[in-house]
């Protein structure tokens, strides 16, 4: 009995195929408790992310208040169609991510891999459109702060808008890049058959992160691209 208990107790039992076999760490009572603790940790991390982006949003509101005319004039140089398409791409990737979590809950391995692959494709699509937007801005001299050298602006501080724009979308883009890495990691593990109805916490965690990236964009897009006067 002792030997058997020891085997059950082990931390390093490899997952086999459908994810039905995994270990509950010894400091958790149940698999449910372990799962919920895992998820709560991700939510706490998301709180730090919200407060992190919150600083940038605060900067946006301050500078918008100080340089209102400049912000209104400069925001017309953003392409709201491109931004809108990017919003749809990101929302679509959020859907496929949520469906990937659902597929993992049902133990559909191939479907998880497929949906995660589509999510990664959407993320690359988002970055590609962002790249087109950025190069267009660079070409026009719509650059942050003192590097701003576009002409024909009536207001005095359009560079401030682009400073905020590039900082916010840049850091958001960095989160997309990190997300691609995380989803790839999850995809490989799913392909390896590590997840199933009993154990899919990493899929859920990465999914929560990816949804937060989507959430941030949901606010960034209207504030930067749409809100004028």
């Amino acid at each position: 009995m002792g030997a058997a208990a020891h085997d059950d107790h082990g931390h390093d039992i490899p997952a086999t195929g459908d994810g039905t076999q995994f270990s509950v760490a010894h400091h958790f009572d149940t698999a449910d408790q372990q799962f919920n603790s895992n998820k709560m940790g991700i939510w706490l991390f998301l709180v730090t992310e919200i407060l992190f982006f919150g600083g940038l949003f605060c900067a946006f509101f301050i500078f918008r208040s100080w340089y209102y005319d400049s912000f209104v004039e400069a925001h017309h140089h953003l392409d709201r169609i491109m931004g809108g398409i990017n919003t749809l791409v990101l929302i679509g990737s959020s859907l496929t991510m949520a469906l990937a979590v659902r597929a993992a809950q049902q133990g559909k391995r191939q479907l998880v891999v497929l949906l995660l692959a589509i999510t990664i494709l959407c993320a690359f699509g988002f970055l590609a459109i962002k790249y087109l937007e950025y190069t267009h801005k660079f070409h026009d001299g719509l650059l942050p702060g003192k590097y701003f050298h576009a002409t024909g602006f009536k207001s005095q501080h359009p560079g401030m808008f682009f400073a905020v724009y590039f900082m916010m979308t840049g850091i958001h883009g960095l989160h997309v890049v990190i997300g691609i890495g995380l989803i790839t990691w999850i995809l490989l593990r799913a392909q390896n058959g590590e997840f199933g109805p009993r154990y899919y916490a990493p899929v859920e965690g990465v999914g929560l992160y990816w949804h937060l990236v989507d959430l941030v964009w949901i606010y960034l897009f209207p504030l930067l691209y749409l809100v004028g006067g």
């Binding site: 059950d8 107790h9 995994f22 149940t30 698999a31 449910d32 799962f35 469906l99 809950q105 109805p197």
Partner: peptide, 17 residues
């Protein structure tokens, strides 16, 4: 029966498609 020797199963809450 306490749990960590014989983990209870986590049952996912699957939402309809």
């Amino acid at each position: 029966g306490h749990g960590h020797h014989r983990p209870s199963k986590h049952v996912p809450h699957v939402l309809p498609l």
